[in-house]
Design a protein around this nucleic acid. Structure first.
Lengths: 145, 145
DNA sequence: GTGGGGCTTCCAGTCGTTGGAAGGTCAAGG
DNA sequence: CCTTGACCTTCCAACGACTGGAAGCCCCAC
């Protein structure tokens, strides 16, 4: 099975498969005599594992750990659960930050007449609103299309 | 006022001020004879505007629009409100995606005994769980420290 | 044997920031 | 006056997780 077929079967693009291989997340695939990468059903299974993990928001580093645990028959479910709980806590924190932003914006928008006059409480807030203090994580957002 | 003072007064780092200037978000600052950037109180005001906007999750492109509206005395508040509402909708969408991830993970974690046995429903799901279909935005997350 | 699609590698760009190196400037103290 | 140290300047690179493209080889159907 070449990389294109593996990509279609796993839902991971060929580009990403090569990238994951190059960055060491997944082992190097075998090659045909022509130099094409060759994938087995097990490899596709692993790729689907990676894909699903990304869909659930795990980082590359976390997926690396999860893959090791997946392959390790003597693993402890506590190890996996720990990673999942950390991910949940992170999600909850980010959700809260975004909720705070949304609430502030909704309040401002509800105070804005939204007509053809220039007076705007949104701009007034941006002009003078208090700044978030700690600034360790600004709650910056993935703005991919 | 040099860039360091402007940074402290606005809450935007000197690095970011230079970056914003270079990328055209803010106008080029005047220079002293020695070549140092020179900032007025108005400039600091503008930098605080940018900082606050970033804190509220606006994109650079949106901030550019907001800055123009801020400077435009004949603006219409509807224009500002439109940008804010778009931002809110985007936030709500992202929050929902992350809520879905968190709910799935919480369900999986609650089914996981988390002990020293290898049986783990989290790994079982990653192995076989259904993939998110549309995949236009994967809900990838900013994982800045 | 030829066309078109798939495969290979490598390089660059995305976004918002942060870090560092190399060198010029300023103000205070000796 | 000279040194020290804090500040400024520019430029270059990296982060994460991809995505796109160019140049060139390979495979299969016609």
């Amino acid at each position: 099975m070449n990389i294109g077929e593996a990509a279609r079967a796993s839902g991971v693009s060929a580009k990403m498969i090569r990238y994951y291989e190059q960055s060491g997340l997944i082992p190097k695939a075998g090659r045909t005599t022509a130099g094409y990468r060759d994938y087995s059903a097990t490899d596709v299974h692993m790729l689907r594992f990676v894909r699903r993990s990304r869909d659930l928001g795990f980082t590359m580093a976390e997926i690396e750990d999860l893959l090791q645990l997946w392959r390790d028959r003597s693993r402890q479910s506590a190890d996996v659960k720990r990673i999942a709980l950390a991910r949940i806590a992170d999600l909850r924190r980010r959700i809260q930050e975004m909720e705070d932003m949304a609430a502030t914006l909704e309040h401002l928008a509800s105070c804005c007449s939204g007509d053809n006059r220039p007076d705007c409480p949104i701009l007034a807030d941006l002009e003078q609103g208090e700044l978030a203090k700690p600034r360790r994580s600004r709650g910056a957002i993935d703005r991919s299309p």
